[in-house]
């Protein structure tokens, strides 16, 4: 058991090990309006267990839009996204929320922590929302996750009392709170300096290597993308290269 596994013994494994964790089939997303805008079109993507995938491309190529679709934050105009073998097309809001809560962990570019809450409270949020662990276990796990990410002395601090790198590590701890098999990260190092950026990248790397998590990270940083195991390159909303395509 890795150091980040402790305290998560009651969180179930969400999907069968043999199936890809995320499958996007002919996914297209068009923003309606007087002039409809196509964000992504005809995306076919399959992401398996324990992959470290970079979604990269130029600004406006549809990287983040694709991540939101894979994370069920947005709905495709056509096509289908399957998470852990489950079709999501006909899921209602509550079902999608449940999948996000239990199967997916999100890390955003601007950490997106609740400003009035301490680091520990922010990490507790997804666990409290899921409600599978008793209070004491939840607090124990939140403290453990933060300590594992080098924030043991900062559990009681609010985001405005932390540095950018520390906030992003709190965001990673929050993404791991319910021990989801998939972490979706949107420019996780985009707003960090090089040192903090390296720290966060190493944490994501460890998640894949030692915890066998699947990490899908959007980045425009080519060097960062090169250090990941698989690169999916988007251009004008379409996949132009995928070095992990089978």
């Amino acid at each position: 058991m890795s150091r980040l596994d402790a305290g998560a013994d009651t969180v179930p494994e969400p999907a069968a090990a043999t199936e890809p964790l995320i499958v996007a089939s002919s996914v297209t997303r068009v923003l309606p309006g007087a002039v409809p805008v196509t964000l992504v079109h005809d995306i076919d993507l399959s992401i398996g267990r324990n992959e470290f995938v970079a979604i990269t491309g130029a600004s406006g190529s549809g990287k983040s839009s694709l991540l939101y679709l894979l994370g069920l934050l947005d709905l495709p105009t056509s096509g289908e996204v399957r998470i852990g073998g489950r079709a999501t097309e006909h899921m209602d809001e509550a079902e999608r929320a449940e999948v996000r809560l239990s199967t997916l962990g999100f890390v955003f570019q601007f950490h997106f922590l609740l400003p009035e809450f301490t680091a520990q409270q922010n990490v507790l949020l997804p666990m409290q929302a899921l409600g599978r662990l008793p209070d004491e276990k939840m607090r124990e796990r939140a403290r453990f996750l933060l300590t594992s990410l080098g924030l043991g002395e900062h559990v009681g601090k609010r985001p405005d009392q932390l540095s950018g790198g520390q906030r992003q590590r709190v965001a990673v701890a929050r993404a791991l709170a319910n021990d989801p098999p998939v972490i979706l990260a949107d420019e996780p190092t985009g707003s960090l300096d090089s040192t903090a950026s390296a720290q966060v990248f190493q944490i994501l790397r460890d998640l894949v290597d030692t915890r066998r998590k699947t990490v899908v990270a959007v980045t425009h940083d080519i060097d960062l993308a090169r250090r990941m195991d698989r690169r999916v390159v988007l251009e004008d909303g379409a996949i132009v290269s995928d070095d992990g395509r089978m």
Binding site: G71, L73, E93, A94, A97, E98, V99, R100, L101, S102, L104, F106, F108, F112, L113, L114, P115, L125, P126, A129, L130, R174
Partner: peptide, 16 residues
């Protein structure tokens, strides 16, 4: 609104 978006992206339901 930003916090609401965060909470919903984490998986909190509309009713919550």
């Amino acid at each position: 609104t930003r916090d609401i978006a965060i909470l919903k992206s984490l998986g909190l339901r509309e009713t919550t």
